[in-house]
Every structure is written in C-alpha cells, then in structure tokens.
Amino acid sequence: MADTPRSFQEIILRLQSYWARHGCAILQPYDMEVGAGTFHPATTLRSLGSQPWAAAYVQPSRRPTDGRYGENPNRLQHYYQYQVLIKPSPPNLQELYLGSLAAIGVDMGLHDIRFVEDDWESPTLGAWGLGWEVWCDGMEVSQFTYFQQVGGHDCRPVSGELTYGLERLAMYILGVDHVMDMPFNDPDAPIPLSYGDIFKQTEEEYARWNFDVANTDVLLRHFEEAEAECKAIIAQEHMDPKTGKRIIMAHPAYDQAIKASHMFNLLDARGVISVTERQAYIGRVRALTKMCADAFVQTRAGGWSGDAA
C-alpha cells in the first residue's frame, strides 16, 4: 500500500481505510450544502459535551465566491474535504496524522513536513482553536486544530480536528498541475474519468448561477425563513406532547443554521452584501449556531446525564 496511488478516489479510499483502521467511525457526507467539513454536525455538534467521539468522513464543500468556471488550476466552488474528529484528542494525534500521509503515498524520507502556526477561527460557528497548517515541501496540505471553543461553549474534553484539502493534496501526490486533468478513477479503468469529466461542466454552471443569476430576493427570503425556523424549533418545549418524551430538536434546528449560512455565502458571491452588512449577517448566523450548540449540550449526545441529576 505504500506505493503511490493512481487516482483521486484511491487517495480517498486509502484515507477511509487508514482512519477506519485507527478506530474512527467512517461517516458519510452530510446531505446539505456546507462551506467546509467542519459544518457537518459530526464535527460542530459532536465536539461539544463530554461524550467521546471518533469520526472521519468526506464532505463535499461549497464556496460560491471561489468559482472560476473550472479554469483556474486550483480554485473550485465545489470541492472535497476529508475530515477527522477525535474527542478527546489522543496524545499521538500528530503521529497518527503523519501515518495517514504515509498511507496515501507521501514518502516520509523524501519530503519536508512542517507544522506552521495557524490559529483557526470560525466567526459563523462562534468557534476557535489552536494548531497548525501542515506543510509538505512548502505546500499547505492540512489544517490541524485543537478545538477550544465551539458555539460559544468551552470544549471539554478537547477535540482534535484534521482537515485535508483533498484536491490539492491529491494533485500534489499524483503530480497533476490542473485539477481538471486529475484522474478521478483508475486511468486504466475501462472508462477512465478525469476530475474535469465529472466537474468541469458543473463548475461552469454553478459559477454562472452563483455570480450572475441567483435571485437575490429569493436567497434573502430563504435566509430569513431559515433563521426564523431555526429559532422556532429551538423555542419548542423539550417535552414532546405526542410521545411524552424529552426530545430537544438540536439537529433539525442546526440544519436551518447551515441553510442560513449557505444562503449568506450565495448572497456574498452575488456581491449584494456591503462591508458593514457582512458583519451583521455573520453575527446572525453565529447567533443561530450558538442556539443550536446550547440546545445540543442539553441532549444525551451532548453530555446531558438525564434525570439522575
């Protein structure tokens, strides 16, 4: 397995089996539009509370402003992140991480791997942590963060989060200069497909829609509806009158927060948000994620210990 992978998907598959081997639950992508793997509730919500957690997954991510109609060799409005979250962060997390690089074909004897200070902060998630960007021969290949706060809550225990920018990392390992030229499946497969075969057209379509066509009135309405719905869900009684059970709907509420966040990103790409308004929108999304975090820590998964208290 230490040989060089041949395709984008082989790198993903190797990461999946590496982290599975090291005890992570291999989850599937979250079924909503998010800006980064961190937004997956398996990271945001599960980094809260006292329950141990270990998960890894691929997350398709969207950053409408980064769209370049598929022409820029490195920039995409839709791309993949690989995300690992382990709580509490194990003492050998750096070694585990380096092991994953070896697993996807980075020869540790030939490359220069460095941990360069990079403090992480997400204003929309009300979250921050300390860590590094990991450099391989001068290229940033991952973010490595010890979460300190999420949704305004101190993380106790602390989660260790690893985020791999898959396209860039894979291009480096496969020696490809333009993302669209990267083999997605095995180049010797009966029907070999490149990244461009799959995504070149969609990058064009989305770039046009994101930048010029998306109806900003509709987006704004969606933003406001999601915001209102999120608040309405949180405002519900904990006791479900139908089942008589205590059901706090942290996840459905969080879905609405994710939706609001994505609407904000789309509005931003349409260029209709001024500098001053920007801060206000970010503040509104942060208020939602904070509410969801507050709700989650009152659930069992969030460490609530029930009637015993």
Partner: peptide, 9 residues
C-alpha cells in the same frame, strides 16, 4: 495564547 488538549485542564 495557550490551549488545553485531550481531557486535561
């Protein structure tokens, strides 16, 4: 700037 890690304080 300092930080906690794992389960410690």
């Amino acid at each position: 700037k300092s930080m906690r890690w794992g389960s410690g304080s």
